[in-house]
C-alpha cells in the first residue's frame, strides 16, 4: 500500500480558477497601476494556497487559505471557487473564517490548570497535564468500576466519567474519541448530535 499524496494541495490561479472576471470577456490589461493598492493581491498571488473545509454548519463549503511563504502564517481565507457546493461563495461565518486563525488574540495557546478551590488559571506544560489527567482518570475509574450490575450481569463499565464531543473536529479525531471512551468502559458518551 502506498499513500504518498499527502501534504498540501496547491490550487492554480490566485484564489481558485473557477470564476474570474476574464471569463466575462473583459480585458483586464492594466492601463494604470497603483502599486500600493496592489499589495495584498500580490501577496495572495505569491502565497501557498491550501484548501480546507468550513467548520460551522454541515454544508461543507470549500475555502482556500493563503499562507505567507516566509513566516508560514495564514493571511487571507476566502471561498474555493472550484468547490461544487459553494462555488467560492460564503456566508457571514464562512467569510470570517480568518478570524479563527492565530490572528485572533483570544485563541488558547497554553495549557491551563486550575487547582481545586483556585481562583485563577495557571499555565502548565503538556507533561504535567497529560500525566495528571491520566492519574485522575485511572483513580476515578478504578474506584467505582462496575464489573457486574445489580442483576449480576457482566458489564465492565465506568459510570463515573462522562465524555462529551465533538462534532466540530475531524473524523479521525472522532473515531479516536469514540474508541478511547469505549476502551475506558464509559457509557455516558455523547456529542452535539442531540443539540
Amino acid at each position: 500500500m502506498d499513500v504518498t499524496r499527502r501534504g498540501f494541495l496547491t490550487i492554480t490561479g490566485a484564489v481558485g480558477s473557477g470564476i474570474a472576471l476574464s471569463s466575462l470577456g473583459i480585458n483586464l490589461n492594466p492601463t494604470r497601476a497603483y502599486a500600493k493598492e496592489l499589495n495584498k493581491m500580490n501577496r495572495v498571488r505569491t502565497a501557498k494556497q491550501v484548501t480546507t473545509v468550513c467548520c460551522y454548519c454541515s454544508v461543507g463549503c470549500g475555502l482556500i487559505c493563503s499562507v505567507d511563504g516566509i513566516n508560514g502564517k495564514i493571511f487571507n481565507i476566502e471561498g474555493d471557487a472550484d468547490h461544487p457546493i459553494n462555488e467560492g461563495s460564503l456566508c457571514a461565518k464562512g467569510a470570517g473564517f480568518f478570524d479563527l486563525t492565530e490572528a485572533n488574540k483570544h485563541r488558547l495557546t497554553k495549557v491551563l490548570y486550575r487547582k481545586p478551590y483556585g481562583t485563577e488559571w495557571e499555565e502548565k506544560d503538556w507533561d504535567f497535564a497529560l500525566s495528571r489527567i491520566a492519574r485522575l482518570v485511572k483513580d476515578t475509574r478504578d474506584k467505582e468500576f462496575v464489573k457486574r450490575n445489580a442483576k449480576g450481569e457482566l458489564v465492565n463499565r465506568c459510570e463515573t466519567i462522562g465524555h462529551y464531543g465533538s462534532s466540530n473536529v475531524d473524523n479521525e479525531e472522532c473515531w479516536i474519541m469514540s474508541v478511547k471512551s469505549r476502551a475506558l468502559g464509559l457509557v455516558y458518551i455523547d456529542h452535539q448530535a442531540r443539540v
Partner: peptide
C-alpha cells in the same frame, strides 16, 4: 480595485451565495 486589476471578483461579489 486591487482584485479587479488582478482578474478577481470583488470580495462581496465572490462571497455572495
Amino acid at each position: 480595485y486591487d482584485r479587479l486589476k488582478n482578474d478577481e471578483l470583488p470580495t462581496c461579489v465572490k462571497s455572495c451565495p
